[in-house]
Write a protein that binds this DNA or RNA. Sequence first.
DNA 1: GCATATGATTTGAT
DNA 2: ATCAAATCATATGC
Length: 375
Amino acid sequence: MEDQGRLLQALSGVTLTGHSVQGTLGLEPPHIHDSIDRDERKQDIGSILHQIMTITDQSLDEAQAKKHGLNCHRMKPALFSVLCEIKERIGLSISGAQEEEPADAQLMRLDNMLLAEGVAGPEKGGAAAVAAAAAAAVGGMTDNSIEHTDYRAKLTQIRQIYHTELEKYEQACTEFTTHVMNLLREQSRTRPISPKEIERKVNIIHRKFSSIQMQLKQSTCEAVMILRSRFLDARRKRRNFSKQATEVLNEYFYSHLSNPYPSEEAKEELAKKCSITVSQVSNWFGNKRIRYKKNIGKFQEEANLYAAKTAVTATQAVAAAVHNGQDTSPATPNSGFQMKDEDFQLDAGDSKNSLLTTMFTGGYHTPYYESDSIQ
DNA sequence: GCATATGATTTGAT
DNA sequence: ATCAAATCATATGC
């Protein structure tokens, strides 16, 4: 009863000194309570608060001490690893081994595209812009270069934004990762968190951030595409080749009519002569071949023109040949036209020009350019 | 304004 | 990779 009394005293904050236990049990008349001094009660509350504070401090210290003791316990590492293992197993059995890497291919595609467009990869925008400006200054393509530099400038802009954003993301990712890692490492002193789990969590963070990066890449790609279609779609801004370039190309075409497939070297030379690209030469020959084949009649006049042209240049050689007593019998410019995997012979009926048809449909197989003849 | 010419691109085959 | 063929989109000439 004595013990109980003290305990109750401590808990209720009412001094029971001089009163019987019955009093604390509510057997005392109530008016006695009212008579207790208010100051005295305040003092009691203060002392209890103090006690509580002290207790809290003590228990914190105690807990800290206990924790430290546990941490230093020789069995702690073993216990920790066992707990980690158990946790690992539970985690695996719940979530299973779900590996999801479907976005990888798309990410690669985006990366490749950005690299191809010059948005990612080594810095070259400035140099290219300078080169373009220089080309413009030299001359040649005056109206084209302005748009091209404009395009370059916009591309550089996109590139800059892309890189700043990417850097920001990377920085945020590293920051967040280190923060989480520190947190987990700190917690691993009191919770079973294995390094493996930390690694996994870090991976999750990286995945999240890389998905954000992918969004950035995606929108950058879109921007570049729009820019391209606005500025670089050659079909929209097509310019005919110069008369001189067409001349050179036609000369080659009609003088190689039996095999109008310039080699890589020939293409390069033609490109240089015409100040166009090799692929433009390829395009031109591709178009020419198909269009010539489709309607040889339409091209008769042109063929004659260039045949005559080359004939003139060949005159000297012919003269020499005649002088040497060689055969100079006429050949036909278009009779031997040959497409790949196909022998294409001119049908006389196709031609609208009967004179030229009779002139050039002689059944000779020797292309005119290979003979030393003049018409 | 329209028909044709022409350079570029796409597609599918080899 | 290169080509033929079809197609697109602009240029040009009338």
